[in-house]
Design a protein around this nucleic acid. Structure first.
Length: 594
RNA sequence: GGGGGUGUAGCUCAGUUGGUUAGAGCGCCAGCCUGUCACGUUGGAGGCCGCGGGUUCGAGUCCCGUCACCCUCGCCA
C-alpha cells in the first residue's frame, strides 16, 4: 500500500503518528514561508503543511505542485496551532506536517477544478466526465447509488431471491419501445435486440421453478430522452411464483420502508396508500400523481350543464367534461401575465383555453368570463370550496384533455407555490390499470403495461366483449409524482395468453412465430407468477433529492443519446460493415475513426 | 418531428439604441507574502463573440439558415 491513511481519516487522536496519504491537489496556498496543500481523495480532504524547515526537495515539489496533480505525502500528523482549526472540515483539527512529497503524476491545468464553487455547464462536465466525477457531490451520488443497490440486493437475498443473469442479445419484438439492434455477423440481415427489460426471461425462470428471481438488469429503449430518462437504464427486476399482487407489493413495500429508513432516516408506515387508476385520473389527471400536495381536481360537469355559458354547455353536450382546481390564496399572487402563462400551459396540453376566476372579497367571481357564469357562481364556489382570495382554474374539454391540462397546471402550481417541502417523500401505489389502450396509429388495442399482463379474474369475460373496461392485475409504485416501478401478475395459461394476443391483433400464427417458446412453456407447467421492476436510476435520483437522472449515472448520454466523452455513437470501418452485411444509406458527416 | 431556452476568454457570466481598442470574477503565468483553508496582493498573457450566409458605411448586437447542449410535447409495452 502506498498510503497508511485516506485523506478523510485523520483526527486529533492521530497526532504524532507517521503517516502516508495519497490524493489529488485540491488547492495550494503558497505563503512563501509556509505552503499549504489540500490533498483530496474519495474520502475527504487533508491539509498538508510545508514549513520553511522542510527539506529542499520537498520545498521544490510543494512549490511546483498544481491543481489535480497526484501526490503521495509522508509526514507526521500535527495538531493545528490554536485558532487555525477549520470547523468546515472533519480533518480540520489536524494537518499533515510534510516530510516528503512524491509526485505520482502531474496534471495539465484542468478545464475546470473539481473543487470550484461555480459548476460548469453540463456539456463541459460530460466531455470531461472524469473531472466531473472527482467532484464530491458526484461522488456522493454514486456512493448513494451503490448503497441503495446493495440494500435492495441484500433485502432480496434475505427473502430467498436468486440472482440470475439474462441475455443482452435477444430477439426483437414489435411491442413496446423502439429496440436497439445489433447485426448478426453469422446471419446477414438478422439482428439481435438489446433487452427493453428481461420480461420474458424472468417469466421463463418462474416456469423453470426458480420461484423468486432478482436481477440488477441493464435495459435499453431507443426513445427520446428526458431529465428522468436515459436510453440505457437499470432496473431492479424481480419475479415471484405462487403470488398475488399483494405479495409482490408487500416485498416492494419492505424495500421502500428499509430504503427510506436506512438512506433518509424516514419512518414510512405500511401499507402504502393505494389509488385506482380511475381515481388517479379523476382526482389528479395523471396515472402517477404527485401526492406531496393537494390541488385536487374537482368535477364541475353537472354544474356546467346547467349554466348559460356556451363553452360549458357545448362541452357537456358534446360528451366532454368541465373540471377545475381551486388554488388557495392565489388570487392576488398571479398577475395577468402569469395567468396567461398558465393558460399557455393548458393550451400546450391540448386545451382550447383556460378559464380563471378570482374569488373576490365580497364572495363574487372576477375574471374574463365571470359574468357568463353568474347563474352558477354560488354552485362553483360550493363545489370548488373557494373562499375570498382563492383562484379557480377551469378547463372544459374531453376527459383526456382536462386530465392532461389540469395535471400540467397542478404540477406547475405545486412547484411554483412551494406546496411541499423540498425533502418530502411520498410513496403510493396505483392499481387497477386498464388492460388495453387505443393505439394512436392504427386505432387497435395495445397493452397498457405489456402483453403478458393478467386481467383481473372478474374481468376475464370482458376481454372480447369490452376490452376498454377490462382491468389488469397491474401496480405502479409512485414516488413524488414519478413512476418508480411497475409490475403485474402475469398470464400463466396459454389459452388466456392467446386470447390477449388476439385482442391486440396478434394472430395465432404471428404469436406462434414470435412467442412460440412462451406459449409452449405456458403449456408445460407454468406456475402462477408475477413481478415488478424498479427504476434504480430514478430511485437514486429521488432518494438523493436530485432532479436529473444524469447525476446518478457515471457516464450518461446526452439528449441525442450521445456520449460526449467517447464520441459514441461513431462511424465504423467499412470492413466492419461488410462483415456484418450492413450497408449505410446515409453516411454520417463525421469521418470514420482511424 | 414540434415548442421553448442557452451558446462571448480555460470556466462562470456581463455586454445599453447597431458605432472607435469586447469586459468582469475565477482559473492560468510571473513577482511579493510564515498560518492559510474560496488566502491576500501587484503585474501579465489569454477572444473565429458556436458555425454559414444576409442586411448595413459599420454586426457580439438585426434577419435567414445550421450545429451542439438543456427543458418540454409527441414517444417511452
Amino acid at each position: 500500500m502506498q498510503r497508511s491513511h485516506t485523506c478523510g481519516e485523520l483526527r486529533i487522536g492521530d497526532v504524532g503518528k507517521a503517516v502516508a496519504i495519497c490524493g489529488w491537489v485540491d488547492r495550494v496556498r503558497d505563503h512563501k514561508g509556509v505552503i499549504f496543500i489540500d490533498l483530496r481523495d474519495r474520502w475527504g480532504r487533508t491539509q498538508v503543511v510545508v514549513g520553511p524547515a522542510a527539506a529542499a526537495a520537498t520545498l521544490v515539489a510543494a512549490r511546483a505542485a498544481r491543481a489535480e496533480w497526484v501526490l503521495r505525502v509522508t509526514g507526521t500528523v500535527g495538531a493545528r496551532p490554536a485558532g487555525t482549526n477549520n470547523p468546515k472540515l472533519p480533518t480540520g483539527e489536524i494537518e499533515l506536517v510534510c516530510g516528503e512529497i512524491e509526485i505520482l503524476n502531474q496534471a495539465e491545468t484542468p478545464v475546470f477544478q473539481p473543487g470550484a464553487v461555480e459548476l460548469p455547464g453540463e456539456e463541459v462536465r460530460l466531455t470531461n466526465r472524469w473531472l466531473d466525477l472527482r467532484r464530491p457531490a458526484m461522488q456522493e451520488n454514486l456512493f448513494l447509488r451503490s448503497r441503495i443497490v446493495k440494500l435492495l440486493r441484500d433485502h432480496c437475498d434475505e427473502l430467498g431471491f436468486i440472482d440470475v443473469e439474462t441475455p443482452m442479445l435477444g430477439r426483437s419484438t414489435p411491442e413496446g419501445a423502439r429496440d436497439y439492434l445489433v447485426p448478426s455477423r453469422l446471419d446477414h440481415g438478422c439482428f439481435f435486440a438489446l433487452p427493453q427489460s428481461p420480461q420474458l426471461y424472468k417469466q421463463l425462470l418462474m416456469m423453470a421453478g426458480f420461484d423468486r428471481y432478482v436481477q440488477v438488469a441493464k435495459c435499453f429503449r431507443d426513445e427520446d430522452l428526458r431529465a428522468d430518462r436515459q436510453p440505457e437504464f437499470t432496473q431492479l427486476d424481480l419475479e415471484m411464483s405462487f403470488v398475488a399482487a399483494d405479495d409482490v407489493m408487500g416485498v416492494i413495500e419492505g424495500l421502500v420502508r428499509r430504503t427510506a429508513w436506512e438512506i433518509l432516516g424516514l419512518d414510512v408506515s405500511l401499507p402504502l396508500p393505494r389509488l385506482s387508476y380511475d381515481e388517479c385520473m379523476e382526482r389528479f389527471g395523471h396515472d402517477a400523481p404527485d401526492l406531496r400536495y393537494g390541488l385536487e381536481i374537482v368535477d364541475l360537469t353537472a354544474l356546467a350543464a346547467a349554466s348559460d355559458f356556451r363553452v360549458f354547455r357545448g362541452t357537456v353536450e358534446g360528451g366532454g367534461r368541465v373540471r377545475g382546481i381551486q388554488v388557495p390564496g392565489a388570487a392576488a399572487r398571479f398577475s395577468r401575465k402569469e395567468l396567461d402563462d398558465l393558460t399557455a400551459l393548458a393550451v400546450e396540453a391540448g386545451a382550447k383555453g383556460l378559464i380563471w376566476l378570482k374569488c373576490e372579497a365580497d364572495g363574487g367571481w372576477s375574471g374574463p368570463v365571470a359574468k357568463n357564469l353568474a347563474g352558477i357562481a354560488a354552485g362553483l364556489q360550493d363545489r370548488l370550496g373557494c373562499e375570498p382570495g382563492d383562484l379557480a382554474l377551469i378547463v372544459a374539454d374531453s376527459f383526456e384533455v382536462t386530465c392532461k391540462s389540469l395535471h400540467a397546471l397542478r404540477k406547475r402550481l405545486g412547484a411554483d407555490l412551494g406546496l411541499y417541502e423540498a425533502h418530502a417523500m411520498h410513496f403510493s401505489w396505483v392499481v387497477d390499470f386498464p388492460m388495453f389502450a387505443r393505439d394512436a396509429e392504427n386505432g387497435g388495442w395495445v397493452a397498457m403495461h405489456h402483453p403478458f399482463t393478467a386481467p383481473r379474474p372478474g374481468d376475464l369475460d370482458l376481454l372480447e366483449s369490452d376490452p376498454a373496461a377490462c382491468r389488469a392485475l397491474a401496480y405502479d409504485l409512485v414516488i413524488n409524482g414519478s413512476e418508480a416501478g411497475g409490475g403485474t401478475i402475469r398470464i400463466h395459461d396459454s389459452a388466456t395468453q392467446e386470447r390477449v394476443f388476439r385482442i391486440m391483433g396478434i394472430s395465432p400464427e404471428l404469436a406462434r412465430e414470435r412467442f412460440g417458446f412462451l406459449l409452449d412453456a405456458l403449456r408445460s407447467g407454468a406456475p402462477p407468477h408475477g413481478g415488478i421492476a424498479l427504476g434504480i436510476d430514478r430511485w437514486v435520483m429521488l432518494f438523493g433529492g436530485l432532479d436529473n437522472i444524469r447525476d446518478v449515472i457515471a457516464f450518461p448520454k446526452t439528449q441525442k443519446a450521445a456520449d460526449m466523452m467517447t464520441g459514441a455513437p461513431a462511424a465504423v470501418e467499412p470492413k466492419q460493415l461488410t462483415e456484418l452485411g450492413v450497408r449505410v444509406l446515409v453516411p454520417p458527416g463525421k469521418p470514420a475513426p482511424p
